[in-house]
Structure formats: structure tokens, C-alpha cells
């Protein structure tokens, strides 16, 4: 009956699409909840550690997470300018 009506009206039910989109989205959002801004935290700590030894432009530290079905990958991309190691600078002072 419902299908017949749908056939006549030419519309398809959109509720199942809504349901599926929500389920996928919320599974993802719930996973990242409770660990507020994990990437921000990782980025700040990595920046702090590396800056102890190398002069860095904070803008050039990029932390990216790719969530896969079985494993996720964490990509850390730090651009280091040439010839400005902090140890050298420290030794000079």
C-alpha cells in the first residue's frame, strides 16, 4: 500500500536516508567525544617537544588523523627551516 502510494506520487521515502546518515554521523561523533580535540592536544605537545631542540614555525606543524575501518593513521608533518637548530643557538650563548 505504502509502495503503491509512493509509486503514484513519484516520491521515495526520505526517512530511511535520514536514519542512515544519522547513524553513521553519530557513531563517528560519539567516538571522538570525551577526548576533546585530541588533534589539538597532540599538536600542542608535539610542538612543545620539538621546539625544545629546533626552532619551528608553529604554523608549519600539521597533525592529521585518518580514521579507517580497522586502523587509523596519524600523520605528523613538521616543516623545519634549515640551519637553525636550537642546540647550536644555545651553545653560542
Amino acid at each position: 500500500m505504502m509502495n503503491l502510494l509512493r509509486l503514484i506520487s513519484g516520491r521515495t521515502a526520505s526517512a530511511p536516508v535520514a536514519r542512515e546518515r544519522l547513524q553513521i554521523l553519530l557513531a563517528h561523533e560519539r567516538g571522538s567525544r570525551g577526548q576533546p580535540d585530541l588533534l589539538g592536544l597532540l599538536r600542542a605537545e608535539i610542538l612543545a617537544v620539538v621546539s625544545r631542540h629546533v626552532v619551528l614555525d608553529p604554523e608549519k606543524v600539521i597533525v592529521r588523523m585518518d580514521r579507517g575501518k580497522h586502523v587509523s593513521t596519524l600523520e605528523v608533518d613538521i616543516e623545519v627551516p634549515n640551519g637553525v637548530e636550537r642546540s647550536i643557538a644555545a651553545a653560542a650563548t
Binding site: M2, R6, A13, A15, P16, R19, L22, Q23, L26
Partner: peptide, 16 residues
């Protein structure tokens, strides 16, 4: 509208 599948049903919402 829910019975026509145009609106999330009560069961959908509660399950989610």
C-alpha cells in the same frame, strides 16, 4: 508523514 516514510519515525529516533 512518518507513516509515509517522509519523517523519521519514533522507533528510528529512539534507536538512534
Amino acid at each position: 508523514r512518518a507513516s509515509r516514510g517522509e519523517m523519521l519515525s519514533i522507533d528510528d529516533i529512539l534507536e538512534i
